[in-house]
Design a protein around this nucleic acid. Structure first.
Lengths: 140, 140
DNA sequence: CTGACTGCAAAAGGTTTGCAAAAAG
DNA sequence: CTTTTTGCAAACCTTTTGCAGTCAG
């Protein structure tokens, strides 16, 4: 609540013609708190603490929050996408194939890669959306 | 058929206790030909050329082929995973958020990144499984 | 007030599963 | 022959959609 990370979220919505509702506040808070949460997890989190929120509202809200640029999503594993706040430091996800753990590294760590992509292909990578699968140190 | 890329596939299956069936041959060929195909696309491709193959068989076959190491999958976009042959040169997928095009770059192009990950985190990235989302040169 | 948003229920994908028949080794 | 694999149909799960009532601005 009144987390520095989510301050200004309401203006951000209004500025783009969306309305500010308690549901949107709840979902944004949940995303901020949970980090890498799936729609289902977000729903569960809110539902057990506050109750009375519809799953389809979660989906629609995530869509809106992503559209206005407050959150993004990544595909960490087979199933559902996971959402996280844009305001939190941009980071790359390292997903271990074995223990399923998700580690994060700062975006700067892969700066050389980004340069290569832009230079050779003119491709501007969306870093926050990046999940690298592999084997973590503990499992290899 | 008798594609150099898929030679030895039958031994590969048998060596791990699986049986060699025409369905598995068809699916492997389709994966090899289509590149980055979803289960649905693989099914459609085979079904329209040969007919009489069940979708659930495609799913089960993809699972087996992946288990024995002949193919891998990546998550290129929201929905279904896409499969490709392991024998084909290992490459990284560049997925454009706007035009949805999938470009490929050789794995060596991101060697510096892999080193950074191993050195700083001991994380061994699975390159063939990597899809980088962003904006391609044409769309940016 | 008015249009955007929510909740509900039903539909729509996409993937998995149980079982009996067919095929591989 | 024995055991795996296939086809079929039904179950499942996640996500989307239509609609009427509700709420934000």
């Amino acid at each position: 609540m009144d987390d520095a990370r989510v301050s200004g979220w309401d203006e951000c919505l209004r500025a783009q013609g969306f309305r500010v509702t308690p549901q949107r506040h709840l979902v944004l808070q949940a995303v901020s708190t949970l980090q890498h949460a799936t729609p289902e997890e977000i729903y569960g989190y809110i539902h057990e603490r506050v109750g009375g929120l519809n799953l389809s509202t979660v989906y629609r809200t995530l869509e809106v929050l992503e559209k206005v640029g407050l959150i993004t999503h990544t595909h960490i594993e087979h199933g559902s996408p996971t959402y996280h706040e844009v305001a939190q430091a941009v980071h790359v996800h390292l997903v271990c194939r074995i223990c399923k753990n998700v580690d994060s590294i700062p975006a700067e760590a892969i700066a050389p890669l980004l340069e290569v992509l832009v230079d050779t292909r003119g491709f501007r990578a969306d870093v926050g959306h990046l999940a690298i699968h592999g084997t973590c140190s503990a499992c290899s």
